[in-house]
Design a protein around this nucleic acid. Structure first.
Length: 809
DNA sequence: GAGTTTGAAACT
DNA sequence: CAGTTTCAAACTC
């Protein structure tokens, strides 16, 4: 499929998922392209204050082509895979089509408004535009330099959301950084539930009403010069936080020999605002001479986030209540360097996602970097700073904000031109997991100050500004798990460290791999507790969560999590645990999927492969970036991909059923090929199976169930009896052998009454089983005798071991 | 343990 | 959405 057929959206259009960009070629990005697969080009588009960009160079070193957008300071704005369109040499991911949302470079539309592909004929000075792949192309945008303006407004008098045109009574921020990753999102801030990407290098954000965001915001984006664009307010509800969030962050290794974390200073605000614009939660409005300059630079050690506002001469004066400056220079400042943080307003405190909250954690023996967000120790407010964390792949679409969204407050201090972002605090409240809206996977980590995690384990609530070591990773705390902030293989990005947020359960696994202690091992994926996911008869009753602060990575849909226990599952002792304390898991044997497809049970269960037999496995931390993409891909195909397949039927109380139903054709749904049968549930009307025999009155099913039950009972009885026998034998006090080792009698004391009783139990169980199986009397007798032989062997063996031990002693 | 069967997942 | 292919587990010998 050619790119022309995909339908693209010019980045400067007035529709939702747009980002604006225009520029000119100063160096032919394609000149170095040799082939689509062998080499690649890396044009660097540099934007300036007037929102123009230049393709300034190429690269042939990367396997994947990226569009790197930098600002005029040469700092990274965004980097995404790109391709050109048309007949020119395609800058494609090794020839593969780019997914929707990726940026495409076109030449600036010609007078006929028909964009032409970037090609080898381009010369420096050619204008280019950036577009998104996979988005229907609207009418070509007018104007060469498209500038997006985002306005967040609030009615100053009523407090109700209200759409504001860009005017004098608004405040404009100029963002100074932009997400550097395709997965960057600010859902944690605004729950815009979107990770739509953008290449927009400049945006202007305007706030009103003293710069404090209300729970519901109206966002308007304007495109200067496009007077025909509509003004469509878009409300972004921001509700109080109800769900505490615990974040586990594991940085992605840049290179094996890099052992320190490099600071980044992408701020929450910039991500919030840009995400608003990128997510489509904004409307575009013409006529605003606004802009956002995105900057990114090194952050000093121990820095917190402040947003410095600066005047933007092109904008009208601001109101007294408004944030005075019209241009926000976002920076990260150390408490002891430069401007100090201003005292927070009452009930507010500065945004605390600062470097001081992030402590680097070195894990011996691993090249991974861990980051710990420390717990506030000086919080006096009745709020706590928490961040909603959602996997990047779980919110590819724009959805209404969940109820447990976190309110974000922005305040400004005109004296110092600093902007502060405040998150609500829930002080000292035990953070119990809350049901999560379906489709939103979350990690809940404890946030009490007494719950400081050990190295590399978990991240607690966000903390006040504290002196920090050499790390400033404030932005990652807002990222969804699995998010890779930065392409780790791009040498153009200096001073940035790739990170990935991983579910807490992964940390548990990883710790097990690293043989590290942990404070509170969280449960594994919720699917593990389902009979289906636990592979039929191995299903077990889930143990009580080790901590109420934890919830599994999977969504906690009440309709799903009210699982029932498999018929034969142990109900008292819980699952058998591994030596590590983890629940045993069947290893996979994947060979071709790299364990990054749902074929792989480990991957489908949201787990890393561990002690598996798979080959070329990428379901591990070493391939976190690849893995994150795979997760996103799965969720793109099916947002419920990682949800339990066996849920509670809503119509029948207590009944479990397959949420999708099976599609069996030849197994009669009476083999483990059938997911329903495997989960020991009957097929439902959801199923599309042919020749189904897995229904209540099915004689075949009853027979199978009877046999399965008999086998299960037999195993259990034998196991119990043998266990008792072993325990009785082991309890026998050892005594010296009463005869020489050769041909002597076994210690008589071994045959105690308990041993005899246990042996009898074994024999009885075997007899009952034989009878249940309706075996002929001869066979029953033989089975009992054989069982007696096994018991004798066990007794003899125990006696021998006892004797040997005594001999050694 | 090798080969076959099966159906979910992935792909077209 | 339907048909086909891929994949890994279940199953058989």
């Amino acid at each position: 499929m050619s790119s022309q057929e995909e339908g693209h959206e010019a980045l400067g259009s007035d529709t939702m998922e747009v980002v604006s960009a225009a520029g000119h070629v100063v160096a032919n990005p394609l000149s170095g392209t040799k082939s689509e697969t062998a080499t690649s080009s890396m044009p660097t588009i540099i934007g300036n204050a007037s929102s123009t960009f230049s393709v300034v160079g190429t690269s042939t070193t990367d396997a994947i082509n990226y569009l790197t957008v930098q600002n005029h300071n040469g700092q990274l704005i965004i980097q995404q895979p790109i391709k050109t369109v048309g007949n020119g040499p395609a800058l494609v991911n090794n020839g593969a089509a780019l997914p929707k949302g990726h940026i495409i470079v076109r030449q600036k539309p010609a007078p006929n408004n028909q964009p032409t592909p970037l090609s080898s004929s381009n010369v420096p000075g050619d204008m280019v535009t950036l577009e998104k792949a996979g988005v229907k192309r609207p009418l070509p945008a007018t104007g060469s330099n498209v500038i997006t303006k985002v306005i967040i407004t609030k009615n100053p008098t009523s407090g109700q959301p209200q759409a504001f045109p860009a005017g004098n009574n608004t405040q404009t921020f100029t963002l100074t950084s932009l997400p550097s990753s395709t997965s960057v999102s600010v859902n944690s801030l605004i729950n815009s539930s979107s990770i739509v990407q953008s290449g927009t290098p400049t945006k202007t954000v305007t706030l009103t009403s003293q710069g404090i965001l209300s729970p519901v915001k109206t966002v308007i984006a304007t495109i200067p010069g496009t007077s025909t664009a509509k003004v469509v307010p878009y409300k972004i509800p921001i509700s109080p936080s109800k769900t505490p969030t615990k974040i586990t962050m594991i940085p992605m290794p840049r290179s094996p020999n890099k052992s320190t974390l490099n600071p980044t200073n992408i701020t929450v605000l910039s991500r919030a605002l840009n995400s608003l614009a990128q997510s489509g939660n904004v409307a575009l409005k013409p006529g605003s001479p606004s802009k956002v300059i995105i900057k990114q630079g090194p952050a000093p050690t121990g820095s917190a986030i402040t947003l410095k506002t600066q005047s933007l001469p092109t904008l009208a004066p601001q109101t007294a209540q408004s944030i005075r400056a019209t241009q926000v220079m976002q920076s990260i400042r150390a408490p002891n360097v430069g401007q100090s943080a201003q005292p927070p307003a009452q009930n507010l405190r500065p945004m605390t996602i600062g470097a001081g909250n992030v402590q680097p954690v070195q894990v011996p023996g691993t090249r991974f970097h861990y980051v710990r967000l420390v717990t506030p120790v000086t919080v006096s407010s009745s709020q706590t700073t928490l961040a909603v964390v959602k996997p990047s792949a779980s919110f590819p679409k724009i959805t209404p904000a969940p109820k447990n969204a976190i309110p974000i407050t922005m305040t400004s201090t005109p004296q110092t031109n600093q902007l502060k972002i405040t998150l609500p605090i829930q002080q000292n409240t035990p953070l119990a997991p809350k049901p999560t809206p379906q489709g939103m996977h979350r990690i809940i980590l404890p946030a009490t100050s007494t719950n400081v995690p050990v190295q590399g384990t978990t991240v607690t609530s966000l903390a006040p500004i504290q002196p920090a070591p050499s790390v400033s990773i404030q932005n990652v705390s807002q990222l969804p798990p699995g998010t890779t902030i930065l392409s780790a293989n791009n040498a153009n990005i200096q001073g940035l460290q790739g990170f990935a947020l991983v579910p807490a359960s992964y940390v548990t696994q990883f710790q097990q791999q690293m043989n590290m202690p942990q404070v509170a091992p969280p449960p594994r994926h919720v699917r593990d507790y389902f009979p289906k996911e636990a592979k039929g008869a191995q299903a077990t009753l889930p143990p009580p969560p080790p901590r109420r602060d934890y919830v599994p990575i999977a969504s906690i849909d009440p309709a799903i999590t009210q699982y029932t226990v498999s018929r034969n599952a142990p109900t008292q002792n819980g699952p058998t645990l591994e030596a590590t304390g983890a629940r045993p898991r069947k290893p996979c044997n994947c060979t071709k999927s790299q364990c990054l497809k749902l074929y792989c049970d480990c991957f489908a269960n949201g787990e890393f492969c561990q002690n598996c037999n798979c080959t070329n496995c990428a379901n591990n931390l070493e391939h976190e970036e690849e893995r994150s993409k795979a997760i996103k891909s799965c969720l793109d195909r099916n947002p419920q991909a990682f949800h339990p397949k066996i849920g509670k039927a809503k119509d029948v109380e207590g009944n479990r059923r397959h949420t999708k139903g099976c599609n069996c054709k030849r197994s009669g749904c009476l083999k483990n090929y059938c997911e329903c049968y495997e989960a020991k549930i009957m097929c439902s009307n959801f199923c599309k199976c042919i020749g189904c025999k897995n229904f209540e009155e099915s004689p075949e099913r009853k027979t199978l169930m009877h046999l399965a039950d008999a086998a299960e009972v037999r195993v259990q009885q034998q196991t119990a009896a043998k266990t008792k026998l072993s325990s009785q034998i082991s309890c026998v006090p050892s005594r010296p052998p009463t005869a020489p080792a050769s041909g002597e009698r076994l210690p008589f004391a071994l045959i105690t009454s308990d041993v005899a009783e246990a042996t009898s139990a074994c024999l009885l169980a075997q007899a009952e089983e034989a009878e249940r199986m309706k075996m002929p009397a001869v066979v029953q007798e033989r089975m009992v005798i054989e069982e007696f032989g096994r018991c004798l062997m066990q007794i003899i063996d125990s006696a021998n071991r006892t004797r040997t031990a005594n001999s050694v002693a």
